[in-house]
Computed example of a mutant assay.
Amino acid sequence: MKRDLDLIRNMLLLIEAHDKPSSMSSNDFKNLNPDVNVIDYHLYLLADSGYIDYMDVNTIGHFYPQIRVNWMTSSGCDYLDAVRSASIWKTTKNKLSEIGGQASLDVVKTVAEHFALSALGI
């Protein structure tokens, strides 16, 4: 399955908007993508990259790991802060399209931070 950078950004925005620390399951993200496998895979990617604090709740019959999100980590907050602005995100995605539209999350964050610094005149 291909990583969806828009979905990752939107999932982090949803986690941040959650009122209190709690366990968010894949059901809490269905409005972003109705395919539970896509959501589960991207939750796994967020956990694997250290962007969320989570619990494994694997169940039989699921292809991807089942994860319950507790909250976003400092690394997750840093990534989200880099890609939060809609205009910075659009510019970042346009730049990434020059290399095929995909890059590591670290590269995406660095590109977004570059555009943010440029917007600040730094």
Rank of each mutant, 00 (worst) to 15 (best):
M1A: 10
K2C: 10
K2G: 10
R3T: 12
D4P: 06
I8M: 03
R9T: 03
R9M: 02
R9Q: 09
R9D: 04
N10V: 02
M11N: 07
L12K: 01
L12Y: 00
L13H: 08
L14A: 06
I15F: 01
E16P: 08
E16W: 10
K20R: 11
P21H: 02
P21R: 08
P21W: 04
S22K: 12
M24Q: 14
M24K: 02
S25I: 01
N27F: 11
D28I: 03
D28A: 09
D28E: 11
F29P: 02
K30R: 15
N31W: 06
L32G: 10
D35K: 10
D35E: 13
D35G: 04
D40C: 12
Y41S: 02
Y41Q: 02
H42C: 05
L43R: 00
L45Q: 15
L45S: 13
A47R: 10
D48L: 09
G50V: 13
G50I: 13
I52F: 03
Y54H: 06
Y54Q: 02
Y54D: 01
M55L: 12
M55V: 12
N58A: 12
N58I: 12
N58K: 15
T59N: 09
T59C: 05
G61M: 07
G61L: 08
G61K: 14
H62E: 05
H62D: 05
H62F: 11
F63L: 14
P65W: 02
Q66V: 13
R68L: 12
V69R: 00
V69N: 00
N70T: 13
W71Y: 13
M72I: 15
M72E: 04
M72D: 04
M72A: 07
T73E: 08
S75W: 03
S75L: 09
C77W: 06
C77E: 14
C77N: 07
D78H: 09
D78L: 04
D78E: 13
Y79Q: 06
D81H: 08
A82R: 00
A82W: 00
A82T: 02
A82M: 04
A86G: 11
A86C: 09
S87C: 04
I88N: 03
I88A: 00
W89F: 05
W89R: 01
T92P: 11
K93E: 11
K93R: 15
K93L: 09
S97M: 10
S97R: 09
S97H: 05
E98W: 07
E98D: 10
G100C: 04
Q102S: 14
D106G: 07
V108W: 00
K109Y: 04
K109A: 09
T110Q: 15
T110C: 10
V111G: 06
V111I: 15
E113D: 08
H114D: 14
H114P: 08
H114W: 13
F115Y: 14
L117G: 10
A119E: 14
L120C: 12
I122K: 10
I122D: 08
